[in-house]
Every structure is written in C-alpha cells, then in structure tokens.
Design a protein around this nucleic acid. Structure first.
Length: 263
DNA sequence: ATGTCATCGCGTCGATGA
C-alpha cells in the first residue's frame, strides 16, 4: 500500500493538480496540509469520485488538514492534548484509524507543524510548544505497539544538507537549533524517518519557495516526510519524492512524498 | 533578499502568512 503526504497550499486553488496527481500516483492514503478552507468548502465530491473517503479538519484561510483513504477511515482526534484553547484554534492535527484489506489496522496521523517565524516572537514559542505537545502525545501512542504513520509538513530542516544554502537559514525558525532539538526529541522516542531509512541522500528537497526564482535555482529545503512507529518501519519498502510535480502549471510550493508498505 | 502565491475583506488593493 502507498501512503502519501502533501502540503497543497490551498486545496481549492490546487484542485486540478491534486486530482491529476491522485489519478497518476494512485496512493491508498493521502495526508494533505494547508487546505486553507473550512470543511464545507473542501472539494469532497471530486475527490470521492476518485474512490477516496475524506476526513477533514478545516479552517478558514489558514492551515487545515485532511486524510484521504481508499479504505474505511475513522477519526481518533483532531486536536493535540496537553494544549490551551488558543493552540486548538489552529487546524494542524488529524489522527485516524484506517482499516486495511488484510483485516489489520493502521494509525495514520496528518500534521502541519507551525512555521515559527520570526524567531523571538510568540510564533516561535508556539512552534516549540506545539512540538512538545506532539512529543507528549506520541509518547503515549507508541505504547500501543501498532503500525503508525505520521505524515507531515514539519517546517523543520533536520540537516544542513537538507537545504541548498544553510547560511541563508541560520536565523530562520525552520533551521534554528531549538527547532532541530525538538525534531530529535521526537525521533528519539523511537520513530523512524522513512526518508532517512530508505534514502538519506542530501539535497532531496520537498519545498521550493515561490519567491526569488527558488525552483529554477533548485534553492529548496527538505521539510516533508513520514515518521513511522517500529511496527510500520518493519513494513516500509520504498520512499519517493515527487519532484517533477513542482514543474506543473500552478504548482504547490511543496511536492508530494509517498512511501510504499508491504501489505 | 525576494524573479511569488493565496486568502480575506466590503474590495477592484492592502494586509497577512508562508
């Protein structure tokens, strides 16, 4: 089975690209970030027509996450615990249980981590606190010892070789030592980064800014990936960054990332 | 630093976020 992750930067502005890619890639499960719309404006009919069940956590203008599944899907929660009301106003988290054809189940989680810029503002504090809340929750989920996949736009550049020009990111929330520390704390719970397990090359970007000719210069960053519980890591077989999608007309600034699992 | 894009509002562009 194929599970994918894609920040679409407005699902309605991107609808032709999304439908086209779903038809070609035929993923079984897709986690979408940055819907930029409320649930009632999500293009459910068009996506259902391709055989997907849609679980949507929308928000007007900003954020918004969804999980598409060809298999039966049930919502587990749509907010991280350990938070305050202000944090939960932002639609950045969606957790589901998907029933697979072989009779087993998989927990699939879609996350859109806060950007956090500029640093030295409450936005950066919010990013760090959000990562703490996620780590606390994942700590509990790992106790189930079940297949679990967390797909995300993590808004964190893990390594210097995950960007074109590390110097340009020195004072950015995506590459700040505190952000990367949160990333390591999360992974050190026992999660496997699917890209690092199966590829691990540097300069395999998933995002290129619209500004400054970043795409033609290949000035990108690697910030989208799938994190796996040990039981999911046992089953992962391949990872793919759909780089060519960045070349499309009206492309998102992120490209899809997919992982193939045995069964 | 900025060769951009998307949304909203009571608007026909500016503010905002990325």
């Amino acid at each position: 089975m194929k599970i994918a992750c894609w920040n679409v930067n407005s699902v309605n502005a991107r609808l032709p690209n999304v439908l086209d890619w779903l038809s070609r890639a035929r993923p079984d499960v897709v986690c979408l970030q940055e819907l930029k719309c409320e649930a009632h404006k999500f293009p459910s009919e068009e996506i259902e027509a391709l055989g997907y069940n849609c679980l949507i956590h929308g928000q007007k203008s900003y954020n918004g996450v969804a999980i598409l599944s060809k298999f039966p899907i049930e919502e587990e929660r749509r907010a991280l615990p350990f938070g305050d009301e202000e944090s939960d106003e932002q639609s950045r988290y969606l957790e589901s249980i998907i029933s697979l054809p072989n009779g087993t189940a998989m927990r699939v989680i879609c996350v859109y981590c806060p950007n956090g810029n500029p640093i030295d503002t409450p936005k950066f504090d919010y990013k760090l606190a959000w990562m703490d809340r996620l780590r606390n929750h994942v700590t509990n989920l790992l106790k189930f010892e079940e297949p679990m996949v967390i797909c995300g736009d993590w808004n964190i550049i893990p390594r210097a070789e995950d960007c074109f020009d590390p110097k340009a990111w020195e004072n950015d929330a995506l590459f700040h030592p505190k952000s990367r520390q949160k990333w390591h704390e999360l992974l050190n719970l026992g999660l496997t980064d699917a890209f690092m397990a199966l590829d691990a090359r540097g300069h395999q970007y998933t995002f290129w800014d619209y500004q400054g000719g970043a795409w033609p210069r290949n000035n990108g960053i690697h910030i989208d990936t799938l994190l796996l519980s040990p039981q999911a890591a046992d089953k992962v077989r391949a990872i793919k960054i759909w780089r060519d999608e960045r070349e499309a007309v009206k492309a998102s600034d992120h490209v899809p990332v997919s992982a193939d699992f045995e069964v």
